[in-house]
Simulated scan of single mutants.
Amino acid sequence: MDEAGLQKDRVTVSPEMSAFVGAGVVDPAALPADGVILCFTLGKDAPAHVTVTTGVVPSGEQAVLVLAVERGACLRVFDYAPDADLACHLPSELRLIVAAIRDCVLPEPWCNTHRSAKCIELLSTTFQRIVEDDLVPLAGAGQLSARDSQRIVAAKRMIDERWGEKMTLDSISRACGLNRAKLTRGFRDMFACTVADALTDRRLGAARQLLIATDLPVSSIGYRCGYLNNASFTRAFSRQFGTTPSSLRAPRLAA
């Protein structure tokens, strides 16, 4: 049987919410009449994105995961329900949750429980990012071609996944097959920040987690996160978080 004849695996999260996982199609009869439909793709043939619609799964959408939630439940739980269709790039945080749902290998009944919990996390996080205007619309690529948009998304993914390595604008542009100027302009258009800002955010975010969760020396954490000396690490960290690395750690050590 070809993919068009397959039905996605259905996960009943609650009486008001279902998830449809994997290849194939969603049975329209399984969708709520007045529902919010979120379709997640992971970037096989296009940039990873989420499409939000009302009542139907968009035709031709190659989603690996579809969430269908009754509108009333969205309003009751979140005091929010999308009132217009939208399509946005999928940041790494959401891609990881989608992948965890799709790729779960636990046997039943643990698989269903795991997927249900992750679906609730995914819905909550996606709605939060939409409300806070923290997702980049697919149209944000401006005049970029679809291929160049994919390359810029790949550059962001490279930063998200390999932030601990030595990376420069030149090395990222070479790895993604774009010249510096196009990468710089496109990255700012799609993600509302520079390549350097995105890399700094990832490195300092990781440093903050290490300061909170480990007893590694401050200088070692700075070096792990790409800073060659403690002074430059402290300056960057203080600008980002309004406190020095040592001050952040001090309350935990005192306790």
Rank of each mutant, 00 (worst) to 15 (best):
residue 5 G to A: 07
residue 8 K to M: 06
residue 19 A to E: 00
residue 25 V to F: 15
residue 32 P to I: 00
residue 36 V to W: 00
residue 37 I to A: 03
residue 37 I to W: 13
residue 41 T to I: 07
residue 42 L to K: 11
residue 42 L to P: 01
residue 46 A to Y: 10
residue 52 V to Q: 07
residue 61 E to V: 14
residue 62 Q to M: 09
residue 66 V to F: 06
residue 72 G to S: 12
residue 76 R to S: 09
residue 78 F to A: 08
residue 79 D to T: 05
residue 80 Y to W: 10
residue 80 Y to A: 05
residue 86 L to Y: 04
residue 89 H to N: 07
residue 96 L to V: 15
residue 97 I to S: 11
residue 98 V to D: 03
residue 98 V to E: 06
residue 99 A to Y: 14
residue 100 A to T: 08
residue 117 A to G: 03
residue 118 K to M: 15
residue 121 E to D: 15
residue 123 L to N: 00
residue 127 F to R: 01
residue 129 R to A: 10
residue 131 V to G: 01
residue 132 E to K: 08
residue 134 D to H: 12
residue 135 L to C: 02
residue 138 L to I: 13
residue 141 A to C: 13
residue 142 G to M: 08
residue 145 S to Q: 06
residue 147 R to N: 10
residue 149 S to F: 07
residue 151 R to C: 14
residue 154 A to D: 15
residue 161 E to C: 14
residue 163 W to L: 09
residue 164 G to K: 08
residue 165 E to C: 13
residue 168 T to C: 07
residue 173 S to C: 13
residue 177 G to S: 10
residue 177 G to P: 13
residue 181 A to F: 02
residue 183 L to K: 07
residue 191 F to H: 11
residue 191 F to T: 05
residue 195 V to N: 01
residue 197 D to G: 06
residue 198 A to I: 05
residue 199 L to S: 07
residue 203 R to Y: 05
residue 206 A to Y: 01
residue 208 R to W: 01
residue 208 R to H: 04
residue 211 L to Y: 00
residue 213 A to D: 13
residue 214 T to K: 00
residue 216 L to P: 00
residue 220 S to R: 11
residue 222 G to D: 01
residue 222 G to K: 00
residue 223 Y to N: 08
residue 223 Y to E: 09
residue 226 G to Y: 02
residue 227 Y to Q: 05
residue 231 A to R: 12
residue 232 S to F: 04
residue 232 S to C: 06
residue 238 S to N: 04
residue 241 F to Q: 00
residue 245 P to A: 11
residue 253 L to C: 08
